[in-house]
């Protein structure tokens, strides 16, 4: 048997990939795998000398808190309502912008810039806009006669979740608009010419030509976006920090709360595992519901 040796090209491939692979496996996969172990230990930042195994205690503690039902409900609302509106508005915009118009480049620069902001800063900006005493949203609604008294958008648990979702919709429309606009522009114009000859109306073209053609993009974008919104605590953290009285916590903000404020890594990791399980279930269900082959590769 010949000794195992790499030729020049193989050496090049190996050396070029080495830094990327070492970084990702050493500082992403390794900590995540260890984090899974931490979920079964008594692991608190304030007592790192005794990190014994506690079985499922962390899971019991997390799922046993009275808030847990609210957190799950908030997570569902956060993902579903944000996604529906981001998608609907983003799709409408993409359709309107498809044909192009003078100044579209500049227009895009003004309406898509939210992409460049951090969720945390957007949270801060909307915390100011939704302010209960002197917030401009209250002022606008009062002036328009829609409300007669100022609403404590962020201090009233009934309104707080609504407010953070509005901010999230504002943030995420650009993503869908950008993706769907690119997809729309990839539809070959011959398809529309043929539909015109057949006398198809605008609406029928939309549902029979456009949407079927860009379906793979729609499906993969939606799946990516669900995962992304699910894992996106930054905005809520900046806007309400889960408050008032825990009424705007979603799973990931709750997890951060455990890390940053209580230093309880065991429970935080347990929440992380719950997140991963939920996402896996979602992906399996999604692939099944949309028939994997249609979703394309993403």
């Amino acid at each position: 048997m010949k000794p195992f040796r790499l030729n020049r090209t193989q050496t090049f491939i190996f050396l070029s990939l080495l830094p990327a692979v070492l970084l990702v496996f050493g500082f992403t996969y390794f900590p995540i795998l260890k984090g899974i172990d931490v979920a079964f230990r008594n692991y608190s930042l304030f007592n790192l000398t005794d990190v014994h195994y506690v079985g499922l205690d962390n899971f019991r503690a997390v799922m046993g808190t009275p808030q847990f039902g609210t957190i799950l409900k908030n997570t569902a609302l956060w993902v579903i309502i944000s996604l529906v509106f981001q998608f609907a508005i983003g799709f409408l915009l993409a359709l309107l912008m498809r044909k192009g118009f003078r100044g579209r480049g500049i227009y895009q620069g003004f309406v898509f810039y939210s992409w460049a902001l951090s969720g945390f800063l957007i949270g801060i900006i909307f915390r100011w806009l939704f302010n209960g005493q002197i917030g401009v949203i209250n002022d606008l609604l009062l002036n328009a006669g829609i409300i007669t008294e100022r609403i404590g958008f962020l201090s009233d648990p009934k309104w707080a979740m609504f407010s953070v979702i509005v901010a999230n919709i504002w943030y995420g429309v650009a993503f869908f608009a950008i993706m769907l606009l690119a997809a729309l522009q990839s539809v070959p114009s011959e398809l529309y010419e043929a539909a015109d000859i057949d006398g198809a109306s605008g609406f029928s073209q939309l549902f029979n030509v456009t949407i079927p053609y860009i379906m793979p993009t729609i499906l993969s974008t939606v799946a990516l976006r669900v995962i992304w919104i699910f894992n996106f605590p930054d905005l809520i953290y900046g806007m309400t920090n889960g408050g008032p009285a825990g009424s705007t916590h979603i799973l990931t903000t709750y997890m951060l709360d455990k890390i940053i404020f209580s230093g309880d890594y065991g429970q935080a990791s347990a929440i992380g595992i719950i997140c991963i399980i939920i996402l896996l279930l979602f992906l399996v269900f999604y692939m099944f519901a949309t028939k994997a082959e249609k979703a394309g590769d993403f």
Partner: peptide, 26 residues
């Protein structure tokens, strides 16, 4: 080359896991 598509998959997956889970170890 062998492992190329698995590596791409491994890269994709990192985009989907909440990294906070590894914070204690990091």
């Amino acid at each position: 080359f062998r492992g190329a598509s698995q590596l791409m998959l491994a890269f994709f997956i990192t985009q989907m896991i909440p990294l906070f889970i590894g914070f204690s170890t990091l």
